[in-house]
Design a protein around this nucleic acid. Sequence first.
DNA 1: TCTGCAATTAGACTAAGTCTAAACTTGTAA
DNA 2: TTACAAGTTTAGACTTAGTCTAATTGCAGA
Lengths: 134, 134
Amino acid sequence: MHEINAEELLLKKGVKPTPQRVVITQYLLSTHSHPTADEILDEVKNALPVSLSRATVYNTLKTLVEAGVIQEVVTEPGRSRYDANVSDHHHFVDTETGAVFDIPAEVITPVRATLDERFKVDGYKVVFFGRRQD
Amino acid sequence: MHEINAEELLLKKGVKPTPQRVVITQYLLSTHSHPTADEILDEVKNALPVSLSRATVYNTLKTLVEAGVIQEVVTEPGRSRYDANVSDHHHFVDTETGAVFDIPAEVITPVRATLDERFKVDGYKVVFFGRRQD
DNA sequence: TCTGCAATTAGACTAAGTCTAAACTTGTAA
DNA sequence: TTACAAGTTTAGACTTAGTCTAATTGCAGA
Ligand SMILES: [Mn+2]
Ligand SMILES: [Mn+2]
Ligand SMILES: [Zn+2]
Ligand SMILES: [Zn+2]
């Protein structure tokens, strides 16, 4: 089992690994829950030694997205979620709980679209919705 | 060419056709631009005889979504867009301008997913992203 | 050690959306 | 025709997610 090191990851992506950036990255690497900025602030502030302001959480998330360390995921109106899984994947949203699950690109059929030639498609995202049992 | 009547549509869907609801519905039927609540308020307030408050715009949009007259579309963080096209369709987002275009379900290949049996899928939405030329 | 820039901070601010309590509208019954 | 009830609209207060600002802190290089 290979353990991912947040600090090494930041260095590899060209982001200076400050303590705040490291703990936010560690937290995102440790969970599959697609947390919101507010959930990240609560978790990291309460569990870790470094002080952390709201502005730093938002600054850091923007920096990490721009560097390709994490991605922003929008599954519901009103707030963004963040995801350290930057592999090619899609999402399943439980419509009762709002929980978000990863769906690897390999387990779905590729989407082919016959569009007007003026549409230059760079990519696509699929969001499945339904219930996840248990 | 068949012209859709907002008032008849509301009656058919069981929504009392008040003047405010009618003009909002008319505006949404008249555009393909997937406007935000604020854009709807600006358009309808300036161009139409009836007075209109922000609360009514939000109340009406919620009522129309619940009745199946329109749908809410989330393509970007921070705000919802509204769509009188309730046929089965997906969206293309121009990543430069933010413009949203309809993609009928028939022009894409159906998405088949091989998922853990605990996922009970009710449906899915595809968002394409790229540039739309001209 | 000094210096300068990047990063962090608290809190003011903005924007999208919700809530509340009062006023208005409409239908129905006395 | 008036009275009432239920549903709708309203202005504006409020909440929440996110941004901005100006001051402070941390740190790498000279
Ligand atoms: Mn994951
Ligand atoms: Mn359309
Ligand atoms: Zn994910
Ligand atoms: Zn649409």
